[in-house]
Design a protein around this nucleic acid. Structure first.
Lengths: 242, 242
DNA sequence: AAGTGGTCTAGACCACCTG
DNA sequence: AGGTGGTCTAGACCACTTT
């Protein structure tokens, strides 16, 4: 559809298929601009997307390089900067859910604050155990305002995000996450079938849609033995200087 | 220095000081362009920086909004997308280090792979316990190629990143991190003065400088009782669609 | 229909790196 | 000195939201 996006996809494919090899210099911006018959600004926008993704980096006066990639064997490594527990992050994996609890009630105080809603707002509350390829991997406790979309057990069985995307035209575009380790609670250890007080990784999340509206407040507990997360960070000097 | 950066800083300050309040509409791009006497493209670049930082978001046809911010009480919350263990992430906090081990040797196999160096390359190896305001908080094990810069115990006592920045003109611009929970090893539990096998958060990191060169391979173990990390994620549809 | 942000252009000049 | 990426412009047109 958009030129810069087509170019982005094209170059991305060429990098991932090793047509442009890791650690090497890419062709110049002028070359690409002529190749794709676009202005240099449009081309730079495509490269900027690739840079934000960490696939390339540019050095003024020198050129644009393909970043050396590490171990992208994401066998048991889940990206920490994508939706968690979806097909986005688990390609070709079967995700199943067992519903432990499903109810609606009024929001508690910390839920009101995190979701930015009124005291009288009704919310859904549900708890699920999720498995990848029939292997237990997380225990989730989720709060979602009812005005977002009507839920039922069947929806919880499948992908909520997929349902929200198609039915409510709602997309997870931003999330505020808190990450820490703790001893598994009795509830979590039973659900995940691990010893009580064994170490688990916890991710608390407030999720926002494309309009900046908080639509989910959740706590996810992961079996430490098989759940490692990866995060590629790119720091520009702006972030650091202030 | 650069117009777009000045504008970025200016608007950012106005947002953080609540001159533009959370949840409200910002002035139009045309307004800002005239206000700062720049082209709309330059202005958009400034807004793009703010959007990447998660402070604002734009909706085509509607306008640009200030995002509602949450709980930025970063009392014991450390950003997961900034350098860890530095003054960047710990404002007005006194960071001290105790050196448990400091040596040089040849790189082991997994270190060679992660750092992208030859088999015969010498590396420094050191272990430190770090405290914030005299409170123990992390146990770090670090490998660094010797060709990066000469190290000694005095440097390790202070900030390595500061030393590398001034002496080697090297800056941490990218990092590949793996995050998980585990039971504290005997070594780590002693260093952090916690019970053996109590849960700890682990961050393994390969750090890259502005030229895309890996310069550090480290494993940091954090006391779970007082170390929570935060991460604000912004997903564009590009990342997700492919 | 009006207003807002998104895309795109052709071209100029600057900053930086490498010979 | 030459080449590369970075900044910046004035203006046109498109896509989307709102009234």
């Amino acid at each position: 559809m958009y030129k810069y996006h087509d170019i982005y996809s094209d170059i991305k494919r060429d990098i991932l298929t090793n047509h442009y090899r890791a650690g090497t210099l890419l062709p110049t911006q002028d070359f690409f601009a002529k190749k794709y018959d676009v202005s240099r600004i449009t081309l730079k926008k495509a490269l900027h997307l690739l840079e934000n993704e960490g696939l390339i980096f540019s050095k003024q006066g020198s050129g644009t390089y393909v970043r050396k990639r590490i171990n992208t064997d994401t066998s048991d490594l889940l990206p920490l900067d994508l939706p968690i527990g979806t097909t986005y992050s688990h390609r070709d994996q079967k995700i199943t859910s067992k519903i432990l609890h499903f109810d609606a009630r009024l929001a508690e105080k910390n839920e009101q604050e995190n979701l930015g809603i009124e005291a009288s707002s009704p919310v859904y509350e549900f708890k699920r155990v999720r498995s990848i390829n029939d292997q237990l991997y997380s225990y989730e406790h989720t709060i979602m305002p009812v005005y977002i979309a009507p839920l039922d057990k069947k929806i919880l069985q499948d992908s909520i995000y997929h349902y929200l995307g198609t039915e409510a035209k709602l997309q997870l575009t931003d999330a505020h996450r808190t990450i820490y380790a703790e001893e598994a609670s009795e509830e979590a250890s039973k659900a995940l079938e691990i010893a009580k007080a064994s170490p688990v990784l916890v991710i608390e999340q407030v999720a926002y849609d494309q309009k900046g509206r908080a639509f989910e407040f959740s706590k996810s507990v992961f079996k430490s033995s098989q759940s490692k997360f990866i995060l590629d960070v790119h720091m520009n000097s702006d972030r650091i200087s202030l």
